[in-house]
Design a protein around this nucleic acid. Structure first.
Lengths: 243, 243
DNA sequence: ACAAATATTGACTATCTGGTCAATCCTTCA
DNA sequence: TGAAGGATTGACCAGATAGTCAATATTTGT
């Protein structure tokens, strides 16, 4: 990360940072105060722009507490990432589409996903920061790679039911679709400012957001739906290939 | 930007920074040396992670030259953004599809766009940094909002010809489509590390990249194509609505 | 050749920043 | 009750960082 931090960081982490659980009740409030201040700071300014002192100040705690509980700036960022992933996961679990018509359900899923990015913009911002740093925190994290994404199951279920009912075509890759749903909804929001600059119009009005999510849903639906008589492009390989 | 920089920056910019043109031939080499070092540094570490000294060192010039020519770190970043936008624009102009079948052309356009992000990853990274800073540099830039995106014309042309030939349906919004093409291709690449973490597999192998671009092209094509007899979802508003 | 303008440089600094130290407070439990 | 261990704090620091100053080198037009 930063040249100076590494050695001292590893040292500090081993020495202080307790094993994840905040056993003492007094600390749990402190920890969550630090966490929410840290989420905001890191999301607003990115890892490198974020200031440890600022986080401590906004959390209303002494800076050393932060080192006491999280070991280092890296440790805190990793904790923030895990926390936010978990928050998203919890929210995604809320989506219940089991009884819904596959077409209606898929549309709802796309729009629901898009709304998450609108309502919790921190998440995508943190991810960008993390990707800039080549994923060094996610890679080290033990919980994140294990977090099963409930949306994948939901998508799979919708696809299966859609195929059975004849509304969806076969052979669609769940991960491809998941990435595309995320891409179509998130990219617009995370690149809001540069898009606004080149298109010369405001993009985050409720109306425009709704329009974009509808567009995204349309695109996903046209992709999965079994357009009767629809003929695929002759040359292009279809995405069902080995994966 | 950073609390301390602003006042001094504005001052410095007014005093030093020459009006864009490097009149003196000796400086042009220096400027471009600084630029390419700056592009790399800013793309690698983001605005806040980038170090002015590092840029000067890699450019092989004295740090003051950088302030002489660009006024401040902000000024340099703005110049880097403009330079990179222009580089992308130049590349996009190379795409010539006028004589191509709309379907083939659209597929080629999507894949061509995706390849740009793969070959010039700096661009998307700079954009992310810029979006994190709420677009303050793009907004101030005079050239960027004026840079007409040649891809928009190309897309428009393809759509028009596709509609005329009966291969594409009517009423598709060019900007919506442009954003989606970018989203489907870029998001996968810029979020490479976090996706790799949660999916637990490498994503940037040539094979996987090709697969993703094919998938993106399929999705775009299915969206624009006139699936004969294809019936749109009953409730969802179509994107041709007032815009 | 010479003055004006620009290019280039080395030395310097005010301030910030992640991190540390050693001490004190507070809770728990034997 | 008392000691053990985590929670919390104020003071402090070494190195980094964007930016500045004043001087020198180089080119250009006349």
């Amino acid at each position: 990360m930063n040249r100076r931090g590494m050695q001292a960081t590893a040292q500090a982490r081993g020495r202080h940072a307790p094993e994840k659980s905040a056993s003492r009740p007094s600390s749990i409030g402190t920890r969550s105060a630090i966490m929410s201040a840290a989420v905001r700071e890191f999301a607003d300014k990115g890892y490198d722009g974020a200031r440890v002192d600022e986080i401590a100040m906004h959390a209303g705690v002494n800076k050393n507490l932060l080192y006491h509980h999280f070991g280092s700036k890296d440790g805190l960022f990793a904790a923030v990432l895990e926390y936010t992933y978990e928050a998203i996961r919890r929210r995604q679990k809320d989506l219940e589409l089991r009884d819904m018509d596959p077409v209606t359900g898929m549309r709802k899923l796309v729009i629901f996903t898009g709304r998450i990015w609108v309502q919790l913009p921190e998440f995508q911002r943190l991810l960008h920061s993390e990707n800039l740093h080549e994923g060094e925190h996610v890679r080290r994290s033990k919980s994140i790679p294990r977090m099963y994404n409930p949306l994948l199951d939901t998508i799979r279920d919708l696809l299966d039911r859609g195929v059975k009912s004849g509304q969806f075509r076969q052979g669609i890759d769940v991960i491809d679709l998941y990435v595309s749903i995320t891409a179509l909804t998130a990219h617009y929001i995370t690149n809001r400012y540069t898009f606004e600059a080149i298109f010369g119009k405001r993009l985050m009005t409720p109306r425009r957001i709704q329009q974009r999510l509808d567009h995204a849903a349309d695109m996903i639906l046209r992709y999965v739906q079994n357009g009767p008589g629809h003929v695929d492009a002759a040359e292009g390989p279809m995405p069902m290939a080995g994966r």
